[in-house]
Nucleic acid binder design. Structure first.
Lengths: 195, 195
DNA sequence: CCTACCGATCGGTAGG
DNA sequence: CCTACCGATCGGTAGG
């Protein structure tokens, strides 16, 4: 018989917030609604969290950490740039799909962060995108890739990866890694010099 | 000397709303803020519009019309499917970039439409995406395209096109059609059987 | 974790 | 297009 350990209230609040923020957006979700979903009074939320924005920033920076952690080992690996890029696409997409609620909030609502979180977030994102750009650049220097506009290419890569959460249905039996690989197939074959 | 004709108030309200909704999102923008931006009292807005949601739905359905109008002539043209697809990508992307404010609202805030607008919007979008799917399917039957998963491919196409508004900077001197063509280059070369 | 409550702000209406 | 105002709801605090 499995023992069910209740999650700490703070975690429950976080996860329920991710769900509600995903459905209605951060601004349109009230603390009263969140409390109701948890079956407690609105004021009780503040025993566990400092403010509504604390929840948002913890989602945003938490996801940022997860994304960095996912690609870090790949950057250090001994692989071709094409292999690295594919692995990064698969890793990034898996993080998105493994955290659909949080990543939806991450993509839509980071704009509602106030300073200094807002600027901090943007610079993290820039650094993350730079890692992808670097691989592309090395691949170009290498002859592996034929990319005219690196920035444009990175933006398009992220567009494709970061919208998967909007149409992905787990019932499709299309697994997380499968989505990433299909994405890589579609995108890489337009990138690699000689297939 | 050019004669400057003042735009009708209703149009001013619409355009200012597009700007504010784009910056802060629909839910986080108040009618008081909108009125202040126009230099009138909040209550005065209601001489020209019925409700806040009326503005949103007029943005959403107006953009939907514009998108359909842009691809319609291409569908009827006498071209290969590859040529059609490229033209549709360029046309769609141009609409996005020519209406950055409205299209940002269109992509982010359609979720806040209430019924029956909500369902109506979704079915319009489905019909629009179907037009792209159709071209892909014909191209596959044709031997022009090698696409294993049509739905997946359409979703990825739209992801790439519909995120351009987020990073496009007019100062880049990258023209609207240029963006579309670069997108088509990147995407089509992963789609066409024999380049 | 609750009761009780704060000042601020929301979308919108009545009537001119 | 304005003044005056509505009831509802917001994020959050005090005190237990």
């Amino acid at each position: 018989m499995p023992i069910t350990v209740e999650k700490p209230r703070k975690v429950q609040i976080q996860e329920t917030a991710e769900e509600l923020f995903r459905e209605r957006g951060y601004s349109a979700t009230s603390m009263r609604h969140l409390a109701a979903e948890l079956g407690i009074e609105p004021a009780s939320l503040y025993s566990h969290i400092k403010s509504k924005e604390e929840i948002l920033s913890s989602i945003c920076f938490g996801m940022a950490d997860t994304f960095f952690a996912a690609i870090e080992p790949i950057l250090k690996a001994n692989k071709t740039n094409a292999q690295k890029l594919r692995a990064m696409i698969v890793a990034h997409t898996s993080v998105v799909l493994k955290n659909v609620n949080a990543s939806t909030v991450f993509f839509h609502d980071w704009r509602h962060l106030s300073e200094p979180n807002f600027s901090e977030f943007k610079s993290l994102r820039k650094a993350y995108e730079h890692a992808f750009k670097q691989i592309l650049a090395e691949g170009v220097a290498n002859g592996e890739f034929a990319v005219a506009d690196l920035s444009f290419c990175v933006k398009t890569l992220f567009s494709a990866m970061n919208m998967t959460h909007e149409w992905y249905k787990p019932e499709d039996a299309l697994q997380h890694q499968e989505v990433g690989n299909k994405l890589a197939n579609l995108l890489l074959n337009g990138i690699i010099t000689n297939p």
